Amino acid sequence: MLIQLQPGLAPAAKAAIISRIEGLKYKVTEVKTQRAHYLVGIGKADIDLRAVGQLPGVQDIHRVSDEYKLVSRKWRVRPTVLDLGDGVRIGEGDFTIVAGPCSIESEAQMNTVLDHLTENNVRLMRGGVFKPRSSPYSFRGMGMEGLRLFHQLARARGVKIVTEVMQVSQVEEMHDYVDVFQVGARNTQNFNLLDALGGVDKPVLIKRGISGTVEELLSSAEYVFSGGNEKLALCERGIRTFETASRNTLDLNAVPILKEKTHLPVLVDPSHGIGIRDYVPDMALAAVLAGADGILYETHEQPEKAASDGAQTLNFEESGRLIRNLRRVYELRQTLE
């Protein structure tokens, strides 16, 4: 069960509720977030929710059978919308485009990408300053020096930043320079990192693991929510299968499934999902029709010279065309709903 407590509840009243739940042979976990105070009850007994719901101090109570209780749509039917400030939002009712290079490489590169995004009214820029690479000899990002410069240049243009955090020790030093922390596919089950991000008051975008299931992605989000951070979004980015014709297999099945299972925003990354530049726009448009709340893709002025992932990165002409088509297809989707 999931219990939402009334704001400002006295400790004695909370203790009485917990005692009542434990008396029903349920284990109770207390969760306090930026927005509310919850009790998560885990047990096997079939109980009458009114036995708890009528207690003083209980604002709401729900029966949630999913393992991922806090991110489940079974109790919160109204979808979560992340407000990043300055009119930038992620969630249902606002179609979000996030674009930028795989890696932040230089001040000149950041400025050219920012010019491209602002010309196309895109308010969120992706770009890695810490890059997990398969080879230790590949370019691994500009680190904190690059992030501080990235933040300065983006702020001057009114653009928000989405960038990947790779380990617990980076969370605090990155905090003031990031608008959305991204958890990459290789860290989706780095539970120490997820716990740390539960303690920050910044949005977190969690990518699906390379071989992860939908349930595992939702469980990763549950870690962050249960740690105190409700500001969450999910990203389908393709999974590793037996298919070799593309870098990964972009699982668009996951989009409507996630939209049914969770109240969190769902984005899609077709760049990593298919890994082939020519096919990225088609998969991005398909993701919109599948119900995605936003698209996250890679763009660079000269993809063939990109420090990483050039084969899946759109040039600015291709990117501009995709932005226009994404908005057209989103408008079409609204007429079909």
Rank of each mutant, 00 (worst) to 15 (best):
V113Y: 12
A154H: 00
A108S: 06
G91E: 13
T163S: 12
I206Q: 11
V255N: 14
V28N: 02
P11Y: 03
Q302R: 08
G310M: 03
M166T: 12
K14S: 12
L49R: 09
E67S: 14
A233E: 05
K74Q: 11
G128N: 13
L252G: 07
T118H: 03
A36K: 13
Q59G: 15
C102H: 12
Y38P: 05
I47K: 09
G141F: 04
S134K: 05
I206C: 09
K44T: 11
P101D: 15
G184A: 05
V329T: 05
V40Y: 05
E67H: 06
A233Q: 08
I97G: 10
R123D: 02
L70P: 10
V40W: 07
S19Y: 09
E92A: 14
F139N: 05
G146E: 07
V165T: 07
G23R: 10
T33D: 07
L232G: 04
D176T: 03
G238L: 01
H116G: 10
V71P: 06
Y137I: 14
V200D: 00
M174C: 09
L267M: 10
Q54K: 15
G43N: 02
S106G: 11
R186M: 14
A10G: 05
H272W: 14
N192M: 01
P303T: 10
G53N: 07
R133K: 06
G143K: 00
A16V: 00
A185Y: 03
G310A: 11
P265A: 09
N111I: 15
E67Y: 13
G8D: 06
K259S: 09
A45Q: 09
N248I: 03
A307V: 14
A99F: 04
Y279F: 07
G85S: 00
Q6G: 10
K131I: 08
V168R: 13
